[in-house]
């Protein structure tokens, strides 16, 4: 099954804490998961101040500055992984370096027709 692991974190904590992950550690993690054939995709996001949100209301598009969700923790990136079941997905997600300073939401991917 495919699972999307959403990494949420307060942005200051992502880089500012002693236990914040180094880039090299994140790369090493990616490589391990890739080597096991379980990495489908991974992307890191620019900080939320680069975010723009689009809505369509009664036929007009509105574009607002900032992320959609005004939460303390923000989406910092995601990993799309292939795991046998939820337990294995949790095992993989728990090793995501940024999980130490934030949290990871694990959700199964809904398969769509192409």
């Amino acid at each position: 099954m495919k699972y999307l692991c959403l990494v949420y974190c307060e942005e200051e904590k992502l880089h500012g804490l002693p236990e914040s992950p180094e880039d090299a550690e994140c790369e090493a993690y990616c490589e391990t998961v890739e080597a096991s054939g379980q990495l489908v995709a991974a992307e890191a996001l620019e900080p939320v101040n680069t975010a723009v949100t689009v809505r369509l209301h009664q036929g007009t598009t509105s574009v607002t500055d900032g992320p959609f969700a005004e939460t303390k923790e923000q989406l910092a990136g995601f990993y799309l992984i292939d795991a046998r079941d939820l337990n294995q997905a949790i095992q993989l997600a728990a090793r995501i370096p940024a999980a130490r300073v934030g949290c990871v939401e694990v959700r199964p991917v809904r398969e769509l027709q192409p």
């Binding site: 099954m1 699972y3 795991a83 046998r84 079941d85 939820l86 337990n87 294995q88 997905a89 095992q91 959700r107 199964p108």
Partner: peptide, 14 residues
């Protein structure tokens, strides 16, 4: 079913 919660006794470390 949807989230794939397995039917198993967790491994020792968990």
């Amino acid at each position: 079913r949807q989230a794939g919660i397995p039917y198993q006794v967790p491994e020792r470390q968990e």
